[in-house]
Amino acid sequence: MARTAVLESTDEAVAGIEDGSTVLVGGFGLAGMPFDLVDALIRQGAKDLTIVSNNAGNGEVGLAALLKAGRVRKVVCSFPRQADSFVFDELYLSGRIELEVVPQGNLAERMRAAGAGIGAFYSPTAVGTPLAEGKEVREIDGRTYLLEYPIKGDYALISAYRADRLGNLVYRRTARNFGPVMAAAATTTIAQVGSVVPTGDLDPEAVVTPSIYIDRVVAVEARHYTVQGAR
């Protein structure tokens, strides 16, 4: 009996996400964004969420739609401001959402640390910049570092190309981005995939995220997203 649940619907997949949860959301812009899970989370209704993602939404789809629905208290991300981030921009400038900006590499490594059981680590990124404020500084072997703490999620919502019934995942091209890191960094990881294949059909040498990190899998229909919406 596999521990990973292969579910029939995205609504089942996001069941139980509580108000106030920290949710890691995969994707870099639109590539790798788990659109169907985010849409299901909007229907599910959880609010007061802290969202950790690289961006703060594009257009009015995916993360931007969740923000627009008023469910998000705080965004932790590297790059909120973009040409099409008007939903976030308005919430932020009117003081209705909190923002923590984290350099992209530190964001990834802090989640990696959470998934790997590392208590904290020293990073050279952001030394001497405004983002170093309040962080412990330490010189090691002649170089200056900042102490960075892990970012752990209650849930991770990620998107992958294909899963087997155990929950092993493979990705496609640059849509991989934060998926493998977030999968390990959350208590409960939920993956939407293009298809679920029988166990044994994935080449074990090619598996990127091993099933141990995955709790729920749901297959979704391939849709082509633009910032205007899906088609």
Binding site: S78, R81, Q82, L93, V101, P103, G105
Partner: peptide, 21 residues
């Protein structure tokens, strides 16, 4: 990465990692 204007939305992306990497 930032003009320093107080009304600007800060966004750093990978700039600080690239700068020291």
């Amino acid at each position: 990465w930032h003009t320093g204007r107080s009304d600007a939305i800060p966004a750093v992306g990978g700039a600080m990692d690239l700068a020291i990497g």
